[in-house]
Design a protein around this nucleic acid. Sequence first.
DNA 1: TAATGCCCATTTGTATACAAAGCCCGTCTG
DNA 2: CAGACGGGCTTTGTATACAAATGGGCATTA
Lengths: 213, 213
Amino acid sequence: MRASDRAYMALREDIVEWRLRPGAILAEVEQSERLGVSRTPVREALSRLTAEGLTTAAGGRGVVVTDISLENIDELFELRETLEVRAAALAAERGEASVFAELRARLLDAPALLSEDDPARHEYYALVGRLDEAIDAAISNSYLANAMRSLRVHLVRVRRLAADDAARLHAAAAEHAAIAEAIADGNPRLAEAATILHLHRSLTHVKAVHPAR
Amino acid sequence: MRASDRAYMALREDIVEWRLRPGAILAEVEQSERLGVSRTPVREALSRLTAEGLTTAAGGRGVVVTDISLENIDELFELRETLEVRAAALAAERGEASVFAELRARLLDAPALLSEDDPARHEYYALVGRLDEAIDAAISNSYLANAMRSLRVHLVRVRRLAADDAARLHAAAAEHAAIAEAIADGNPRLAEAATILHLHRSLTHVKAVHPAR
DNA sequence: TAATGCCCATTTGTATACAAAGCCCGTCTG
DNA sequence: CAGACGGGCTTTGTATACAAATGGGCATTA
């Protein structure tokens, strides 16, 4: 694997896992020493991160990690709803029913994944990720799929902010199952409604967890 | 201005103006000699273009200009409609009425801009661009605005494919004026409808111009 | 004391040398 | 004759040296 890819993944991981907080300054030499590669691959990695909106160039003082907080979260979810509602509808029109029927079944079993003590909820998020991928594949629209992929990077950052408890994840799994069911049934309007409901609940939960300063 | 910026703009211009056709191979040394800079800024420029989706890395044979044709145009317009319909509705909710009222008036005068013999329709497209910028500003959502900005780069490429005649541009100006009017009136549903109508007409025109192989 | 201009340190921007990796083509072999 | 294999060449990937630009701190001055 290329050094620039490793640098990119390492930095992106550090940012979405909040090890590099919003506002942190990433100097090229500093990061190149930390990651054990030269400035060139670090530079390319920072370029890609900036293109994605995870960092922004800050004049003569390196690039800074983009701010994400409750101020922007409404904007983020506005775009998310725009894209995901449409994607769900298109998936309902074009997707393979069997794929989503199976995902629905697995999502209904999701509480089993959460009962084990896995603090990172790895299995659960992997399952949700599979639903995302299935929708991406079903819509067969590379432009829309790319837009959603770039959006998801930002959403993972918010995940940490949400600090979901088991109760919320149980409910979210049921909501995801409802989306999968609507898509499997080939019902676009229902898929839209289920998506709107899920996103509304997610956003409400995040805001409830955090003090509305 | 930085050499990498110049290289980026030059290459992007060459691609959207179809001087570099889809499938063309861009080798780093070749382009660096052509643009009179070293490989490093060319490399960064190609990186940015690839992130935008205008080029794709092609293994050990340089980056190639992304294919765009009637096969993908449906996908492109699907994303376009998703974003622009929502943006128009949000602009109607949040925009300054006076700004859009003035743009509407100018758009109704657009035929005057087209009567002069300006083959590139520079003035006309600048006016449409001002409407886009006004919508971007009105929605006050940086994520959505960025998504639309990155989409527009691809749309400019399609513009060449469309080969709009004067009659189509007259009609399009009227459609844009209708969108501006709906936003100025603060009527989100009407703004959505006007946008859907405009995009449908645009896509239909492109497909009519080109033989439906 | 607050504003302003200058100087220096730090950081990014560019060029280039060298290393590694992938493709193309010729050859060999079944 | 078709397919696999290997060498050479082209192209990208990485490191580093040097240039330019920007920001921060200090001194100066109104």
